[in-house]
Design a binder for these strands. Structure first.
Length: 429
RNA sequence: GGAGGGGUGGCAGAGUGGUCGAAUGCACUGGUCUUGAAAACCAGCGUGCCGUCAGGCACCGGGGGUUCGAAUCCCUCCCCCUCCGCCA
């Protein structure tokens, strides 16, 4: 959620930001500003009534104690009707606040000035591309063919048991999953992140805290009986770990990581781009989260991006780093990098990581602040996160890139070690 | 799931209808003292909002109610503890 202070003091910046994101109308913004005015007037009115109420109550108490009961009754009588007025004033205030918050919740974050202007994927800026695209002496197969032939993934039985998008990973396939998770966690820990194993269900307040609600309502699986959501990403529980806290400045940055399955309904997705491991309802991911001082968040994002790229380099996967344009980046982000690996069998790029700086956008909702070392009021922190990394498309890219003419796939040494397979691990049909 | 007991400031812990945003202790910050430190003493020390910047309002787990007045009484939800039941 945008800070009201920003909106009030510099509405033009927000108006520009909305336009950059492709919002043709800034009417919501004008409504918010008007409601903010109204709210403050109503608050003042309400508070004046409360002050009067309190004063009368004290007078009555004083009279009662000095046994001037008649005068006390008199004071009570002058009080008549005040309660109803207070009730009305409170209601007016509440309704103004609710209306304002409803609008604020709909306003996206302000893009950082360095974010390229644009509406479409073609406007995303390729910051760098690393690794050679492979040349094959045969036509490389897509991963779903390889995965079936190598008996790594069972899509059909997954569909039977749960539905499309819920595959079984079998034998070496399951082992490969574990090896990737193990590798990614070990590297994150080595980079100074505290490993956390979070709840896989979160309540509504948490989902609002990181901005999944109301923006992504309908994309999360919702357990109606208990009003809980299956996590769409570890970002939600990991960032909420600190919700409502005031962190001493010298404890910043907080760096945490965790592996979770991620559940996404992916309502509206269909076709070739969702084939195989490309887009699933359940997938595994290791997430990194940082809570940092506002002055250091943009530098932190660069570090996190470099870190995630390092994982791709370890796996020897060709990739490119995109700086997302204003219209393509997420609702909550001020700036966002996506990492894409080359899919040799599909002849296209696959997104395997998204790294973002949220500025104070999540912190405002989370009430997550730090106490300045110099003293003074608590200030909102900046929060960041990134996938490091999401598994299915890594598996897809590994299989497609490293396939041999005979259908076998040999995995990089860093993975075979984590799988407990020594220095080399070759999957054979 | 059943029965009972609890949730108060960073921590501990008073407070059962009025002058309580809240005693006291610890912790923390500043000062005095000291060569320095400790101790002692003095002072400060929650969060948010409104504001004509004087001040005002709200918050004692969340929400609602009773009352002129609620940390205190009532209802409800959440969480924690103890015992029983069930169970990986």
């Amino acid at each position: 959620m945008l800070e009201l202070k920003t909106l009030r003091e510099d509405p033009e910046t927000v108006r520009q930001a909305l336009r950059r994101r492709g919002w043709n109308s800034t009417r919501l913004l004008d409504d918010a500003l008007a409601l903010d005015q109204a709210l403050r007037a109503r608050m003042t009115a309400h508070q004046e009534l409360l002050a009067r109420n309190r004063k009368t109550a004290k007078d009555v108490g004083r009279l009662m104690r000095s046994k001037q009961f008649a005068k006390a009754e008199e004071a009570k009588a002058t009080h008549a009707g005040l309660k109803q007025q207070i009730r009305l004033a409170a209601h007016d205030e509440d309704s103004a606040r609710e209306a304002l918050i409803d609008i604020l919740m709909m306003l996206p974050n302000v893009p950082h000035p360095s974010v390229p202007q644009g509406q479409f994927a073609s406007h995303n800026q390729v910051v760098r591309q690393v690794g050679e695209l492979p040349a094959f002496g045969f036509k490389p197969k897509p991963h779903w063919v390889l995965a079936e032939r190598l008996h790594l993934v069972d899509f059909a039985r997954g569909a039977k048991t749960a539905g499309a998008g819920f595959p079984f990973y079998v034998g070496a396939g399951a082992r490969l999953q574990r090896a990737l998770i193990g590798l990614f966690l070990a590297e994150a820990i080595r980079a100074g992140y505290l490993e956390i194993q979070p709840p896989l269900l979160v309540n509504e307040v948490s989902a609002r805290g990181t901005g999944q609600l109301p923006d992504k309502e309908g994309q999360m699986y919702h357990l109606r009986d208990d009003d809980l959501y299956l996590v769409p990403t570890a970002e939600v529980p990991l960032t909420n770990f600190y919700r409502g806290e005031i962190i001493p400045e010298d404890s910043l940055p907080l760096k945490i990581c965790g592996h979770t399955p991620c559940w996404r309904r992916e309502a509206g997705s269909y076709g070739k781009t969702v084939r195989g491991l490309n887009r699933l309802h359940q997938f595994d991911k290791v997430e990194i989260v940082q809570v940092v001082h506002p002055d250091k968040s943009y530098a932190a994002l660069e570090t996190m991006t470099t870190y995630a790229e390092g994982l791709l380099q370890m796996l020897k996967l060709p990739y490119r780093t995109l700086l997302m344009c204003s219209g393509e980046m997420g609702f909550n982000q001020t700036i966002q990098y996506d990492l894409e690996v080359w899919s040799a069998g599909q002849d296209r790029w696959l997104e395997v990581s998204s790294l973002s700086n949220f500025g104070t956008f999540q912190a405002e909702r989370l009430k997550l602040r730090y106490r300045p070392q110099s003293g003074g009021k608590p200030q909102l922190v900046h929060t960041l996160n990134g996938s490091a990394l999401a598994l299915p498309r890594i598996v897809a890219a590994l299989l497609e890139l490293r396939q041999q003419a005979d259908g076998s796939v040999s995995l990089p040494a860093c993975l075979s070690r984590h799988a407990g397979m020594g220095e080399s691990w070759t999957l054979r049909p």
